[in-house]
Simulated assay, not measured.
Amino acid sequence: MSVRGIRGAITVDVNEPQPILKATIELLNSIVKENEIVPEDICSVMITVTGDLDATFPASAIRQMGGWELVPLMCALEVPVKGSLERCIRFMLHVNTGKTQAEINHVYLGGAQVLRPDLSKT
């Protein structure tokens, strides 16, 4: 078994708590489904947000989900590169898995599909 990184990102339309929390859950659920993982498999989750999303902590949505109470979560600000995608939430899950790197499914939703069109699901 190896530790693999799973990337994902999603955008929101407005800097308000409910859209941020909803998008966080949508992205996490998509990553979990696409990779057939359970919370016990996850070592940690790093969550970044762009500087224009300061209405709430995305991790607070995950903390409310059953089975996720003990998963280590960390929120941080994304590097503020000029011209980069706005209102974006990004994930990096570190997961214990028997899958190879090629078998990992990264998930980019909504406007975040432009970040990695080669990996985006339609």
Rank of each mutant, 00 (worst) to 15 (best):
I47V: 07
G67D: 06
P72G: 11
M46R: 15
V12L: 06
P19W: 01
V81Q: 10
G51L: 12
D52L: 09
E103Q: 12
E69Y: 08
R7T: 00
I42C: 09
K22E: 10
V32P: 00
A112N: 02
F57Q: 14
T24G: 02
Q64M: 14
V49G: 05
H106F: 04
I10Y: 03
S44I: 01
I6Q: 01
K99G: 06
T24N: 02
T56P: 04
V3D: 01
V49Y: 05
W68T: 03
E69Q: 14
G83L: 05
V107H: 03
V12T: 08
I6G: 03
I42D: 07
N35H: 04
E69D: 15
L70D: 15
L85I: 08
P72T: 10
S2T: 00
Q113S: 11
C75E: 15
L73C: 05
E69K: 12
E40P: 03
E69F: 09
V12F: 02
C75S: 13
P39T: 02
P58R: 13
C75I: 12
S60E: 14
V71D: 06
A112Y: 01
R7I: 00
Y108A: 05
Q64L: 13
G51A: 14
I42W: 08
S30Y: 04
D118I: 04
G8A: 01
L77R: 10
T122E: 12
R87M: 10
L93R: 10
T11Y: 03
E40A: 15
I37Q: 09
L93A: 11
C75N: 15
T11Q: 04
N105P: 03
N96D: 13
V38T: 11
F91N: 06
I31M: 09
L53N: 07
L93V: 04
T24H: 02
V3W: 00
M46E: 15
A55T: 13
E16R: 06
T122L: 14
P17K: 08
S30Q: 12
A55L: 12
R63T: 06
T48P: 06
A23S: 12
I47C: 05
N29R: 11
L53G: 08
V81F: 12
L27H: 03
R90Q: 14
S60A: 14
V14R: 04
N96Q: 13
I6Y: 01
S120R: 08
L115I: 11
V38W: 03
Y108C: 06
E16M: 00
Q18N: 09
A9K: 00
I20E: 00
A9N: 02
N105Q: 13
L73G: 06
D41C: 11
D52V: 08
G111N: 11
R90D: 09
K33H: 08
N105C: 11
I25V: 13
L119H: 06
I25Y: 00
L109D: 05
H106V: 02
L77I: 06
E26H: 00
N105Y: 07
P39F: 03
V95A: 10
M46H: 15
L21V: 00
V71K: 05
N105M: 11
G98D: 13
T50S: 10
